[in-house]
Design a protein around this nucleic acid. Structure first.
Length: 282
DNA sequence: AGCTACTCCTGGTAGC
DNA sequence: TGCTACCAGGAGTAGC
């Protein structure tokens, strides 16, 4: 599922085809992708407008328009964006298509229909609830430590909370926690400064390495806009490796469920901080 | 405040 | 082969 590195890859690859282009026509195949406005209003706000650029904020793609509004797109689970020559066969799952004045179409494809391709009048307001960008200078070991200490939550759900830190999803949280040797259920308030510094470093390292490898592809879904899979899945240390040996210590990677999410940990590298009280010891 | 459950979706897969 | 049941999960929301 696209997280920050995958969205960054999409932004980089479609930018040359989309930046500066004018929208000539709009087609909508699934209204709910628009997030509430009618296809008529969507079309009125887009046709004739110029797309000024392609940016990424957290897991959102933001395409500001010369009107002051912006396209705000979230790929969610299975969304894909392509900028292809007109007439390109987008298959049967395309949801929104913008004809650009370059002769290319910007096409949003989404099998599971969770994704959004919205026209937003005030993009800053729309994205105001998002927390810091993990790769920005504003995100420091100190701000992470103080943020963790200000809450009392299990680490994994907190790191998935986009208002706390914006851009991580299930895969990169599991990988970051493993590399920082922290358990997903550890209480955020108990993370000390040294652990926070390590977690901060590993979050940034995992994301940077994944961007270098154009994201992670392990099923039929995520592909770059050029149609290629990413390659960071080969670097996974725990995600999707339940039952396999830990590459660091050889212990068997455990798959569990935390906050309704599949969760992967090494029981030796990431020991639980306390015994689970609901499970009586034999 | 923080948790759990539920919703939205459907291709892929396991089991029979 | 063809059927059914279940799974994956980001984000929003409701309820406790």
């Amino acid at each position: 599922m696209p997280e920050l590195p995958e969205v960054e890859t999409v932004a980089r690859l479609i930018r040359p085809h989309v930046s500066g282009r004018r929208v000539e026509a709009v087609e909508v195949a699934w209204k709910r992708t628009l997030g509430g406005i009618t296809p008529q209003a969507f079309e009125r706000g887009l046709v004739g407008r110029r797309i000024l650029g392609v940016e990424r904020r957290a897991k959102y793609l933001v395409m500001p328009l010369d009107s002051g509004a912006a396209i705000v797109c979230h790929l969610r689970m299975t969304g894909r964006l392509h900028a292809e020559p007109r007439g390109w066969d987008a298959g049967k799952f395309w949801k929104v298509r913008l004809a650009l004045d370059s002769g290319r179409d910007l096409v949003f494809i989404d099998v599971r229909k969770f994704g959004r391709f919205e026209l937003v009048r005030d993009p800053a307001a729309r994205l105001a609830e998002l927390g810091p960008e993990p790769l920005s200078p504003e995100f420091t070991a100190e701000t992470l430590h103080s943020g963790l200490g200000a809450r009392s939550r299990a680490l994994k759900p907190l790191l998935l909370d986009q208002s706390f830190l914006a851009g991580l999803g299930n895969i990169y949280v599991d990988e970051s926690l493993f590399r920082a040797r922290l358990h997903p259920l550890a209480n955020s308030r108990r993370v000390n400064a040294e652990q926070a510094t390590l977690l901060h470093r590993e979050i940034r390292a995992v994301l940077s390495e994944a961007i270098e490898r154009e994201g992670s592809s392990f099923d039929t879904f995520y592909r770059t806009p050029e149609g290629n899979p990413g390659s960071f899945q080969h670097q996974f240390r725990v995600y999707g490796r339940g039952g396999e040996p830990c590459r660091d210590c050889g212990a068997t990677i455990v798959r569990s469920v935390v906050g309704q999410r599949g969760t992967h940990t090494c029981p030796r590298c990431q020991p639980r901080p306390r015994r689970p009280s609901r499970r009586p010891s034999r």
